[in-house]
């Protein structure tokens, strides 16, 4: 009588969020395939799926997800009562770069100017190398926000540091001030952009030439009570995201208390002595899940 358990849905959270990314493109692609015979001469568009494959889709088959991003003025206010933090477990990172890809996909970035970098770190000659995923640290004492002459980059009450690219004058003082090289500049006209979408600092889309951009912690997702794309994209659960006020962080499959995690694994913040008070914590690369392997030749960081 009893049904067999579905193992996939055991990982509650995972099943609810990951396939959104894969599912949309994959699903659209398949639907498009089935109606291909009917209208052969329909206009086609190429899409980059989350796993980096190029799919060709009939334009009509693309049902656009209705999305209403928050306008720039409203994006200056944080989500009340929250303070977002990220925890990166360096022991679990093996430079899979899924976070980079999903970030690039959702922010419509070309691979030459990603928001996330995975750096090969070696603290000194005798210590072991490790991979360090690096986003914007969303500092509580942000050097970039201090120096912005027009308030185009700002700190929100929920801990996020965002950029309003409709206000940015492109002086790049924030880039010079950021000690973590978190920011990228649109040196030329940005490519592959969905220009129809209304601009919001919460999506960072569309980009504009001559303005600064960076990792935004995906506030559009946070408003829907979903974690940023990179968190769910990590196949090894190396990235945790959560609310510091609620003292809980999740990597998509498990939810832990932030204080316990930091206590048990001796979490630290990168270059604490700079006084920037980052909101990204790192767990040292001890008891690693993977042996360190050098990046393949020609792979960008």
């Amino acid at each position: 009588m009893a049904n067999k358990k579905n193992k996939h849905s055991r990982r509650q959270f995972f099943s609810k969020t990951v396939p959104v990314a894969i599912g949309t493109i994959g699903g659209v692609g398949l639907v498009a395939q089935s109606c291909q015979q009917a209208n052969n001469d329909e206009e086609k568009i190429s899409l980059l799926s989350a796993d980096g494959q190029l799919v060709e889709v009939n334009k009509s088959a693309l049902t656009k997800v209705p999305y209403k991003p928050v306008p720039p003025d409203e994006a200056r206010k944080g989500i009340p009562g929250k303070h977002f933090v990220m925890v990166v477990d360096l022991a679990r990172c093996r430079n899979a770069r899924k976070c980079v890809k999903s970030c690039d996909h959702h922010h419509q970035l070309t691979p030459d100017r990603p928001f996330i970098k995975v750096l090969r770190m070696q603290d000194n000659k005798t210590s072991a190398p490790y991979w360090m995923p690096k986003k914007c640290f969303h500092c509580d004492n942000p050097p970039c926000v201090k120096v912005c002459p027009v308030g185009a980059t700002y700190k929100r009450s929920d801990g996020l540091v965002l950029i309003d690219n409709e206000r940015c004058i492109g002086c790049r003082f924030c880039m010079a001030a950021c000690p973590y090289s978190a920011r990228v500049f649109n040196w030329g006209e940005p490519k592959h952009q969905d220009g129809d979408r209304p601009y919001s600092p919460e999506t960072s889309i569309p980009s504009q030439v001559g303005t600064v951009e960076k990792c935004d912690f995906c506030p559009d997702m946070l408003r829907q009570n979903k974690v940023p794309h990179c968190i769910t994209a990590c196949p090894n659960g190396a990235l945790y995201f959560g609310d510091r006020n609620a003292d809980s962080v999740t990597n998509g499959s498990e939810t832990v208390r932030l204080s316990t995690l930091l206590k048990d694994k001796a979490g630290y913040r990168y270059h604490e002595e700079l006084g920037t008070e980052p909101n990204v914590y790192y767990l040292p690369p001890v008891d690693r899940s993977f042996p360190f392997k050098e990046a393949p030749e020609g792979q960008p960081s």
Partner: peptide, 9 residues
């Protein structure tokens, strides 16, 4: 306990 993004067991 219900959190913003997930449930904490």
């Amino acid at each position: 306990v219900k959190g913003t993004f997930s449930l904490f067991n």
